[in-house]
Design a protein around this nucleic acid. Structure first.
Length: 289
DNA sequence: AAGATTGTTGCTTA
DNA sequence: TTAAGCAACAATCT
């Protein structure tokens, strides 16, 4: 579920919390969540530190120490990175505050990797479905991986010209273009539906048959929605939480995703749901053309 | 109890 | 080469 805005929220939070903190110990509870050798993973990281956290698309890039090795984290569908400081208050009573869900007893049955920092802080990689993974790469491998990513919203490569260029001649349906990470990176199922609704374009339109005006709308609304979603700290549909275990605020702003059968916010007609590219696809047949 | 679920990869078919 | 559909990955929830 984490798409660009959710991964960006996690990245920003984590940067303020764990940068330059010495890693004391790493515990691997699920070998499947780690690509590559476990012992060399521990050997590289224990006693070391993260010097920066970057991101490309939905992939998080932790720079290790002096910066010749990198830890890549992909959360896939249900991955979470949850940070806790030393003092954990587990009072007898239960919290009745608005930040419900923020207090969680970790590790739990879905904790796959634990990073223990020397100052007592902990970072938990939780992943219910175990699709997510962590791996170590060097500069050369990182470059190779980065090259596979398409143009990305909010970077200088994401211009109307470049969007036109990647759409040109493409016989894929527009939603499949938006979700294809090699063409455009960072957008997943939720934001693809939201962007197309806002742009007034049906998801099954063939990309190369869109008018210049429609492409321009998709371009502007992609930037607008992704920016707004970051501002609201992402969308929680079922699983996503930030590094403190809190839900994303953009969920309330969703206009079509997860609203099948409900009234369209513009025309009051029922929101339709179909399957496109194997994913649930939500749209308004009256507002989108 | 069958069918749904955010992401990605890889296979098959056309 | 391109696109679509599907299964796989695993564990939940409705």
């Amino acid at each position: 579920m984490p798409e660009l805005p959710e991964v960006e929220t996690i990245r920003n939070d984590l940067k303020r919390k764990i940068l330059d903190e010495k890693i004391e110990k790493i515990e691997i509870l699920s070998e499947k969540s780690l690509r590559g050798n476990i012992e060399s993973f521990k050997k590289l990281l224990e006693g070391n530190f993260f010097s920066d956290i970057k991101r490309i698309g939905k992939l998080m890039i932790f720079e290790i120490g002096r910066g010749d090795k990198f830890m890549l984290v992909h959360l896939k569908m249900t991955g979470q990175l949850i940070y806790q400081d030393k003092k954990i208050i587990v009072a007898g009573g239960h919290s009745s505050r608005s930040d419900e869900g923020a207090i969680k007893n970790l590790p739990d049955k879905f904790t796959r990797v634990i990073f223990y920092f020397k100052n007592g802080e902990k970072l938990f990689f939780n992943d219910l479905r175990r699709f997510g993974n962590i791996q170590i790469v060097d500069k050369k491998e990182l470059k190779k991986i980065k090259n596979k990513f398409g143009i990305e919203p909010l970077t200088k490569n994401f211009t109307l010209e470049n969007l036109k260029k990647v759409i040109d001649g493409r016989k894929l349906k527009i939603k499949s273009v938006l979700m294809n990470q090699q063409i455009i990176s960072g957008i997943g199922n939720i934001y693809a539906d939201e962007i197309l609704f806002a742009a007034g374009v049906l998801p099954d339109r063939i990309a190369c048959r869109l008018s210049a005006e429609e492409i321009k709308k998709i371009f502007c609304l992609t930037e607008k929605i992704i920016k707004k979603a970051i501002k609201y700290r992402g969308t929680t549909f079922s699983n996503y939480v930030d590094t403190s275990g809190r839900r994303g605020g953009f969920s309330k702003m969703l206009k079509v995703y997860g609203r099948a059968g409900e009234k369209c916010v513009c025309c009051q007609e029922k929101i339709k749901k179909i399957k496109l590219g194997g994913r649930g696809t939500h749209f308004c047949e009256y507002c989108q053309h």
